[in-house]
Design a protein around this nucleic acid. Structure first.
Length: 429
RNA sequence: GGGUCCGUGUCCGAGUGGCCAAAGGAAACUGGCUGUAAACCAGUCGGCUCAGCCUACGGGGGUUCGAAUCCCUCCGGGCCCA
């Protein structure tokens, strides 16, 4: 594995928001270490919000360090007070196990868990394995003893909760940072982990860990945070039509993932390229120039969408997503031949109807609901009134319209579209 | 344990007996202009068998011709006192 300059890799891409010590990178370049990042196992899939950490861990691994993906099986039950999260429900043991399996599979796309990676072989751990059995007294004596409430109260994540006049913070959530600090200490002792990375909102939790390690062991550990990924207007990144964008192909198809990045804003596309791809400096700056000079070509978005989709789902799926996008957005879907449609159907959301029900006549409204393009008849009706629904590229202007056998295209497809870019294929059984 | 204030639609937040499916803002959706972008403009934004009906203002019960609004109680939360 080619050693590369990690400091340059991270700083040139704008990945470092804060770091605990200036000399960190010179230490990292002299000896391999282990670096950890926590992931919340509240779902059975990771989402694009996790992408930055996944890519950054990968960069560390490429530089010869061992990445540790820590599933917060224990901390996930407690809840980080930083977000606006409410008190969380305990995950059942079974649910947690299932989630860990799903997440593990996805981690494997970013990190090398094989023994072939040698000292840099990635590992996945669940903090419930050591936090669960810890007794309250051990926790209070070995961990709590090293923190003053004064400093805990001063952390931003906690302070903001104090400042909200209408809501307090439970002791449980207040303790969150100590649990995360305990994780870092555990990993430091047992896995030689000396670096923790996280989002910039994790700064307080990370420094709690480094100071705990110093107090308990006298050793030194560091932390680096990554910037918060946002959209151009500063709002949350990672939401698209229909909610979160997942890394699981069953929740968000490769086509949808591709589309999500394809529609990235010009302003942000170069930054996303630096964050989420492994392209070299030359290509990055070239694409940035292209974006500035010929934004309508969307060269950066195309590259971004293809690269990320390939990283998450593999080259084959990325290629298909790209082909499907080209086909659908060339403007003349209705003229596509059966073979192209069939190729697209595995990537674009698809549902099926029977020949019998079709020949009886199916209302466009019901089909749109079946397809999940709208959530209610009222919404479907509204969309039609506003000219937002089309079938085989023809705008529907009558809310009571029905479809029959004559609307089926060659190859047995009906193409539904809502708005400009939400496509859905209906197959006929 | 005592006192006090609060709990409204996806979120924030007005309303404090009928004119309330509930102001305003945000988010979201559609259309227009563009480039599958941003900004901007316009419309929509609980559901349905849609000029009507059903469901909804933390849960349950009550007062009333009529309740998000009043009373009781339970649950949840903030603050103060012990």
């Amino acid at each position: 594995m080619a050693r590369f300059d990690l400091e340059h890799e991270l700083t040139s891409r704008g990945l470092v928001a804060q770091q605990t010590d200036e000399k960190l990178f010179s230490h990292l370049s002299t000896a391999p270490t282990s670096v950890y990042c926590g992931f919340d196992p509240t779902a059975d899939s990771l989402h694009v919000g996790n992408l930055l950490m996944l890519c950054t861990l990968r960069r560390f691994q490429l530089a010869g360090h061992r990445p540790i993906a820590l599933a917060g099986g224990a901390t996930g039950m407690v809840g980080d007070p930083g977000g606006r999260s409410e008190e969380r429900n305990l995950l059942s043991v079974d649910q947690l196990a299932a989630n860990l399996v799903g997440i593990n599979e996805q981690l494997g796309r970013f990190l090398d868990f094989s023994s072939g990676a040698g000292a840099a072989q990635a590992i996945q751990l669940d903090n419930a394995t050591w936090l669960q059995p810890m007794s309250v007294l051990t926790y209070l004596r070995d961990i709590g003893k090293h923190f003053t409430v004064n400093e805990m109260v001063a952390k931003d994540s906690v302070k903001s909760r104090f400042e909200r006049p209408d809501q307090g913070i439970s002791y449980t959530e207040f303790s969150y940072m100590l649990l995360q600090a305990a994780d870092f200490l555990h990993l430091y002792k047992n896995f030689d982990c000396t670096v923790q990375i996280g989002g910039s909102d994790q700064w307080g939790n990370i420094t709690a860990g480094t100071s705990l390690i110093r107090k308990v062991t006298g050793g030194h550990a560091s932390g680096i945070t990554m910037p918060l990924v946002t959209k151009a207007d500063g709002t949350k990144f990672g939401k698209s039509v229909g909610g979160a964008v997942w890394l699981d192909a069953n929740k968000t198809s490769p086509y949808q993932l591709y589309q999500f990045f394809m529609s990235a804003e010009d302003q942000m596309a170069p930054a996303y390229l630096r964050y989420f791809t492994f392209l070299d400096d030359d290509e990055l700056s070239h694409l940035e120039v292209l974006t500035n000079e010929q934004p309508h070509q969307r060269a950066a978005q195309r590259r971004l969408a293809k690269q990320v989709t390939a990283l998450v789902h593999g080259d084959e799926h990325a290629g298909r997503a790209e082909q499907a996008s080209i086909a659908l957005f060339s403007g003349t879907v209705a003229s596509l031949d059966a073979a192209s449609l069939r190729a697209i159907s595995s990537d674009v959301p698809t549902s099926s109807v029977t020949t019998a029900s079709l020949s009886a006549g199916l209302s466009v409204i019901d089909l749109a609901i079946t397809a999940g393009l709208v959530s209610s008849k009222a919404e479907a009706r509204r969309s039609i009134e506003q000219g937002g629904l089309s079938v085989n590229d023809l705008r529907i202007d009558d809310a009571d319209a029905t479809l029959g056998a004559e609307d089926v295209k060659d190859g047995g497809f009906i193409i539904l579209r809502k708005g400009k870019r939400q496509y859905h294929l209906l197959t006929i059984e």
